[in-house]
Simulated scan of single mutants.
Amino acid sequence: MTMMRETAETVALQALGWLAGNDELWPVFLGATGASEADFRARAAEAEFLGAVLDFVMMDDHWVVAFCDSQGHKYDLPMRARAALPGGQEMNWT
């Protein structure tokens, strides 16, 4: 079943909130992107940015599990949400 883009954006915003509340992971996220907290606030409504948030969370299975457990989501939800956002359909095998 295909996820609606609005639902995918909601999941990504939840992931962003989870990251921002994680004292250990938030600095890693900021460092990986090279952006400031102000940049994230300004871009939080952009679907492309939200896709990047989900890409980051999905880099580590432990992060996916922790995020999903905190929100009561199934573990495949971030992947399905990412597929519904711009760039999520592309497969990069690098």
Rank of each mutant, 00 (worst) to 15 (best):
V64D: 09
R41E: 05
A38C: 06
F49L: 06
E9W: 03
H73L: 13
L25C: 06
R82Y: 09
M1P: 01
M58R: 15
V11W: 07
G88I: 12
T10E: 01
M59S: 13
A42D: 05
F67E: 10
V64A: 06
F40Y: 11
L85E: 03
A12T: 04
L13V: 00
L77G: 09
S36D: 06
A32G: 09
M79V: 11
L85S: 04
W63H: 13
F49Q: 10
E37H: 09
E24D: 10
A45S: 01
G87R: 15
F67C: 09
S36N: 04
A52W: 06
S36K: 06
A66D: 15
V28F: 10
P78Y: 10
E46M: 01
K74C: 10
A8Y: 00
V28W: 10
Y75W: 05
R41V: 13
A81D: 11
E6F: 00
D76F: 14
A83N: 13
L50G: 02
T7K: 04
L30N: 09
A52H: 07
F40M: 04
S70N: 11
G34C: 09
D39R: 07
F29L: 10
H73K: 03
D60W: 01
P78H: 07
K74M: 12
Q71H: 07
D55E: 15
H73A: 04
A81F: 06
D69E: 14
T94N: 08
E48H: 08
W93F: 08
T94V: 12
W18N: 04
A32L: 09
F56Y: 08
M1H: 03
A81N: 01
W63T: 04
D69V: 13
A38R: 14
R41W: 12
Q14I: 00
F29V: 14
A15F: 07
A35G: 05
R80W: 13
A32K: 01
W63E: 14
N92C: 07
W63Y: 14
A20Q: 06
P86T: 13
G88L: 00
Q89W: 10
F49T: 07
F29P: 06
V28H: 14
H62R: 15
D55T: 12
D61I: 07
E48W: 10
F49Y: 08
L54M: 01
F67K: 07
G72F: 05
T10H: 01
